[in-house]
Design a protein around this nucleic acid. Sequence first.
RNA 1: UCGGGCAUUGUCUAAUGGUAGGACGUCAGAUUCUGGUUCUGAAGGUUGGGGUUCGACUCCCUGUGCCCGAGCCA
Length: 556
Amino acid sequence: MPSHFIREIVKSDLKTGKWNGCVQTRFPPEPNGFLHIGHAKSICLNFGLASEFGGLCNLRFDDTNPTKEEDFYVKAIIEDVKWLGFDWGDRMFYASDNFVQLYEWAVKLIKDGHAYVDDLSADEIRQHRGTLTLPGRDSPYRNRSVAENLDLFERMKDGEFVDGAKVLRAKIDMASGNLNLRDPVLYRILKVPHHRTGDRWCIYPMYDFAHGQSDSIEKITHSICTLEFEDHRPLYDWILDKLGVYHPQQIEFARLNLAYTLLSKRKLLQLVEEGCVDGWDDPRMPTISGMRRRGYTPESIRDFCERIGVAKANSTVEMALLEHCLREDLNKRARRVMAVLRPLKIVITNYPEGQVEEFAAENNPEEPEAGSRKIPFSRELYIERDDFMEDPPKKFFRLAPGKEVRLKHAFIIRCEEVVKDDGGNVIELRCTYDPDSRTGGATAGRKIKGTLHWVSSQHAKKAEVRLYNHLFTKVNPADEKECPDLKTGLNPDSLEVLKDCLVEPALAEADPGERFQFLRMGYFCVDSKESKPGAPAFNRAVTLRDTWAKISKKKG
RNA sequence: UCGGGCAUUGUCUAAUGGUAGGACGUCAGAUUCUGGUUCUGAAGGUUGGGGUUCGACUCCCUGUGCCCGAGCCA
């Protein structure tokens, strides 16, 4: 297994005994949206490192902003982390668990002269902050007495002031090159009920005044977060230092970017709210729930997260790797079945009318123990429309006038006649079969290049199939330059619904969430929301690798 | 322009002064009752310039490019 710099840090800490042999990590989502594949990277990293080195990983909700957070998201996040295969035991925490302690710590900072109540408006604070190149200016309220600060802060807590009237600020350095150190806001007034603490509080700590201390309280050893918090580390260090409490080590890594995919919770929420998708769990969404509904396995996602590595350089991973991980997993496990997505009728003219035979079909060539099933064969069948061409190019191994193909698990047939409607559209093929060519038969060994999947007309069941493609036409839809308006970046072909598909009889009763390989077509998953017994709906998780598609595309 | 960070094949990622390696992708071939799988092979890389060294992706100097930062968001 390839290692990465964070694993090396943990290993070395273990060797030197820096944390007394402990590894304690945590995954700290804000419950303001659904988890996506980028979060999966962090989840696998934090839980993975803990289990690899005999440590523990907590689940902690960073719920310091009641205007954006909901219990609805808490539930979804719990389900997703569990589904990915991780367990936090009894260590599920909330930053809001620490509100009392955080308040007391704020009081301590005030008493020690490290924090003050500021009456400046948000706008004035911004003006005093200076710019990236120019230092800021002290607030006129910066030097209030400890007693006055204590009094004011308590009255903030007691609800005496309106939202925005006052804030508590750290007294650090208005000239610091690091903007986070220019007297950052620690507490703000928000007369908004909190999903857990209700209306007990009307002041709430900022993330920066909650995160580091929550890590400290939970005795986190390696506080792993993404690159944008690198500039905040000096602030966390300052707070923990002034408080004189346990001090975890923060380590930053680059967040995941995926080509043609949006991994910003804010923008994903926009897609949901504007109805561009069928909710957070739309199979086109990069959310864990969307990928689950699409047919991704937890194993494939974990494998992906291991393969992409962990580093500090920004990078964009190709979709092909994610798809490879899914195919590799499903190739081993998914039952093979036959489904015709765009049916074309064929009649075997020399096959007795009314006769039905049953042939054995292996369920998975990669796993003989998966056994086999019986599939019915009759005179009238359906094949894939794309598997016939009236005027085929050279390397076309499929059906064409006068050409032979093998029907998987059945006979070799020859196309004798093409039937068209008044519009010149092919509506039926009349074929003959070689009765000895059945599996095990006298002429079964004949070299035939093409093998097609099929269903028996009278036995097949109708099904709906959804074909998904990437949601965006832009490699980086999050880039405002590349994609100024989210909606115009959407791929108009991200979803194709096929209503008249025909599947093997047994598939009509498939269970929600069950995954199959539709022979030669791809991996499909029974939709967990809309599939009904007798009226199945399948989502295409990923196509099979398709060298023919590549060849024909190249030729134009 | 200030502070912080980052640059290795098309993509992701190793190499911690000693043969630049792996994965995905691409291309070619073999096998195959899935144009799938499997197997074999190939092409392809150290951001530019200087230095130190027997030897530099690695150390030093100096450019260049990219990312993050001016929320009472996280």
